[in-house]
Structures are given as C-alpha cells and as structure tokens.
Simulated scan of single mutants.
Amino acid sequence: MIFRFSVLASGSTGNSLYIETEQHHLLIDCGLSGKKMIELLDQIDRKPEQIDGILITHEHSDHIKGLGVFARRFHTPVYANAKTWQAMADGIGEIPSEQKFEFAPNTIQDFGSLSIESFSVSHDAVDPMFYIIHDHGKQLALLTDLGYVSEHIKGLIQNSDAYIMEANHDTEMLMMGRYPWSVKRRILGDTGHISNDESGLALTEVLGNHTKKIYLAHLSRDNNMKELARMSVGQHLERVGLNLGQDIRLFDTDPEQATTLTAI
C-alpha cells in the first residue's frame, strides 16, 4: 500500500504537487514551463510519461503555465471545473477533447484507491478549488491560495495526516515593502493570500492526533522568508502545547527544488 507525495514547486513563480500510488501518478497544477516540470520530476526520479492525470486548482498562471505543453506532449488527461476550463483556455492553448475532464467543486472523484475531494476557496480566480486526497484512511490536505480559512474548510481538513498549507507573507514585511497599495490590499483581502500568522492560527484549530507533517507553501519572494514562516507558524503550534520535531514536523517548500518523495 503506497501513498507518496512531493511538492515539486511552490511559490509565486510556479506550483505543482506530485502524488502517487501503485496504480496512479498524478499532478495537482502544472505551473512551471514544460522543461522545468520534467526537471522537477527527474529530481524525484519520475518520468513525465508516468503522469496519468493533472488536476487544476484555478487558472492563475503560476498554476497552469506548463499545462498545455505538458498535456499535449505526453497526452495527459486534465481535470478542472467548468469555469476554470473556460478561464484558462487562452493561456494553455488547445487540448484534445479526449484529454479534457470536468471535476466540479465540492465533489469527490476516485483514482484507483485514491479518493480526491475538491472544495471551494475564497481567492480572486473565477472558481478556485483545492483538494483533499484520501487513501486507505490517510489524508493529505492541499490549501495554498485563499484569503481566509473558513469554518467549513476547517471542518473538511480536520485531523489530516499531512498539510500543504499556505504561509504567503509576513504582514509587517508586506506593509513595509515596495508593492503598491492596490496590490497589498489584494493580498490582505478576503480573496488574496493568508499570512504566516493566519496560517499558524488556522492550523492550531485543525490539527489532530493523526497530524505529523506540515509543509509551508506559496511563500512570497518579496514579503516572506522560510525561516520567518517556520518561526511564526511554529510559535502558534507550540502555544497549544505541540512539541516541534517530535509531535509534528514543519517542512519548507521551494520554487525550484522538489521536496523529498515521502509516504503520507
């Protein structure tokens, strides 16, 4: 029984998650060039020809940049909701109809032993959704682009074995930084991105006795640092009595380097 994953890349320059079982090899998002996607898969000793499905979260370029090239070259099936298919059409070019599949928000689709549950989020895309991956009682929650974590979402992702969780920015760095106010307001708003502190607070409300791993994702290049994100989120976890490194482990993600392929 195998259920492994690697965060191939995460950040404002591109995002992709790899998931595998004995039966399936899937990507969630394909937000880097086709050449870079092949390089990232090679970092975990996997081939693009092995990928038998790509699930899309939303149409922003850092989630679909390499999708069209990759899907056409390797004849990979692609899954997205109807509004996202429409919104990303110009950005990905033509994909053969036999490779296009609909995955509606707030539904579940099965890929062999994997049951993948989609759920809607608040983000400034046409119909953004993220995923919870279930396999033989194990659960991986992916949540990287949202303005806030609703009570409904907290219920869905409760007590996951692992989280890939947005920690986009340090609020003070953002406010003091070079971005124009319009961009700062967008990031801070209810359809923007959550901060390190917001991430840490949400995690304290959803972690359970199954939770062992948290991957901090989609860090801003300009308004965050890996060390700062780990420290901020870690302080919230320690505040509720968790022992970092023993009860739970925090991991970095990177825009250029895949995380180690690991079992859930």
Rank of each mutant, 00 (worst) to 15 (best):
V126D: 07
E98W: 13
D222T: 08
Y148L: 12
D124A: 10
I2M: 15
E166M: 07
I194W: 03
Q43Y: 01
M88Y: 07
K36T: 12
F111T: 07
M225S: 13
L140C: 04
F119N: 01
H169L: 08
E166W: 03
T259V: 01
A202W: 00
N196E: 15
M173C: 11
L40P: 00
A71W: 02
F3G: 12
L32C: 03
I2W: 15
S150Y: 08
H210W: 09
L156C: 10
Q23N: 06
M173A: 14
H152P: 02
D90Y: 13
V149N: 01
N224L: 10
W181S: 15
L146W: 09
K35H: 08
F119K: 02
F5Y: 13
G208L: 03
G147H: 05
M231D: 13
E256M: 14
G68C: 00
E238L: 04
I214F: 07
A71P: 01
D62E: 14
D145I: 09
V240A: 10
N81M: 04
E172P: 09
F103K: 04
T107W: 05
A141R: 01
V121R: 00
I194M: 07
M37S: 07
I248G: 05
P128E: 00
T260F: 06
S61H: 10
L219C: 00
I248A: 04
D197C: 15
D254G: 00
A202G: 01
H75Y: 11
A89Y: 12
E94W: 09
D127Q: 06
E238T: 07
E227V: 04
I164Y: 10
N196F: 15
Q99C: 14
H136Y: 12
E238G: 05
M173K: 13
G200P: 03
L140T: 06
Q109T: 10
Q257I: 08
D45P: 10
H60E: 13
S150G: 09
G147Y: 05
D197H: 15
S61P: 08
I51T: 11
C30N: 03
P77V: 01
I56T: 11
G208M: 03
I187G: 10
I2C: 15
I2Y: 15
D52E: 03
D45V: 13
I108C: 11
E117H: 00
A141H: 02
N243R: 03
F5T: 07
G53W: 02
F3R: 12
T259K: 02
I108D: 10
N243Y: 02
N196I: 14
S150V: 07
D42S: 13
I56K: 09
I54S: 06
D45I: 12
I164K: 11
I56N: 08
Y148F: 14
H25L: 04
A82Q: 09
A82W: 04
G112S: 07
S160G: 10
E39Y: 00
T204D: 02
G241F: 00
A80S: 03
I2R: 15
M1Y: 13
I108N: 11
M37Y: 05
P105N: 08
L27F: 05
D52W: 00
T260A: 09
N243D: 05
I116R: 00
P48Q: 06
A258M: 04
S220G: 05
E20V: 02
T259I: 01
A229Q: 04
A263E: 15
I2F: 14
